[in-house]
């Protein structure tokens, strides 16, 4: 089931990644490749470190050992200036949107352009309107972030993330807490933007249906390890009981419904048993 991508096909290469929070190991010698120009989904139960993986790729966290190469550059060997240069080519969509609350929608999308370019206001205006048009929120340009719904905030954050025409986009749980319409809009946007802008997308999610619908390749992570990988069809066809339980949301299986505990009868009867 495991694909070996040719080196020129790979945008992000993770080798022997080990990372933990204190005593708790999040990743234990994990290796995976993110292919160029595709939507790659990273899925797994809550708390498996999917968001942590994005922060490691973005250089916001440092691994204990192992290396992460983005477009041939070792993220954690780069100096401050070089890392920031690389980040200009990485877009990231945070779960909350992470919009700057004191700036309007327009100014939020203009923010990276104003920070990193010397473009005149007229050109910034055109670019911002084009990005907002792409996410369907050109009409909401004067609203403040507090006036937006969760789905709209994520779409504005998406417009901001593509403002500098990045090489890749990382999505952190983009579908969480969305109504079906917003969810549909986001699924379509992620798919269309990846295709039209020639991006590489990494989609971190545990919304199986939506993710599988647009992903070209899927990694399943659990307990600090890659427990499954392949195209969505291959994942669906997997014989692994764990993958089967995760993909179909079965309440019981290899991941038990009950948290480990002493025998139920003994526990109820207490000292009388």
């Amino acid at each position: 089931m495991r694909h070996v991508f040719a080196s020129d096909e790979v945008l992000i290469s993770i080798r022997g990644l080990t990372f933990g929070w204190g005593e708790r190991k999040i990743f234990d010698n994990v290796s995976l490749d993110i292919p160029r120009g595709k939507v790659t989904a990273i899925m797994g139960p809550s708390g498996t470190g999917k968001t942590t993986l994005l922060k490691l790729i973005g250089g916001q966290l440092r691994p204990e050992c192992g290396e992460i190469l983005v477009d041939g550059q070792n993220v954690h060997r780069l100096g401050h200036a070089a890392l920031y240069e690389l980040r200009k080519r990485m877009g990231m969509l945070f779960q909350s949107g992470a919009l700057l609350t004191d700036l309007s929608v327009y100014e939020n999308v203009a923010f990276p352009l104003r920070e990193h370019t010397q473009l005149p206001d007229s050109m910034i205006r055109s670019l911002v309107l084009m990005k907002l048009q792409a996410v369907g929120l050109r009409g909401a340009r004067n609203l403040m972030p507090t006036e937006l719904s969760g789905g709209m905030a994520r779409r504005v954050a998406l417009a901001r993330a593509i403002a500098l025409d990045p090489l890749m986009l990382m999505y952190d749980e983009p579908f969480t807490g969305q109504d079906p319409i917003s969810m549909g809009v986001l699924v379509k946007l992620i798919h269309d933007l990846n295709r039209d802008l020639g991006l590489t997308s990494i989609l971190v999610s545990h919304d199986v249906m939506e993710t599988v619908a647009i992903a070209d390749y899927v990694y399943l992570i659990s307990g600090g390890q890659v427990v499954g990988q392949g195209t969505p069809a291959e994942i669906e066809a997997s014989a692994s009981p764990w993958i089967g339980q995760f993909m179909h949301g079965a309440p019981d299986g290899p991941v038990a419904f009950h948290y480990p505990a002493i025998d139920y009868a003994r526990d109820l009867l207490g000292d009388a048993a």
Binding site: K55, G58, Q60, Y84, E85, R87, K88, M90, G91, M92, F94, Q95, S96, A98, L99, L100, T101, F111, P112, E115, H116, A157, R160, L164
Partner: peptide, 21 residues
């Protein structure tokens, strides 16, 4: 609050240094 709402992280990922900005 900017930290709690990931605005500072968001800035870092936009290659804007939040300490300087």
């Amino acid at each position: 609050l900017m930290k709690a709402t990931e605005q500072l992280s968001g800035m870092e990922m936009m290659a804007v240094d939040p300490i300087k900005r």
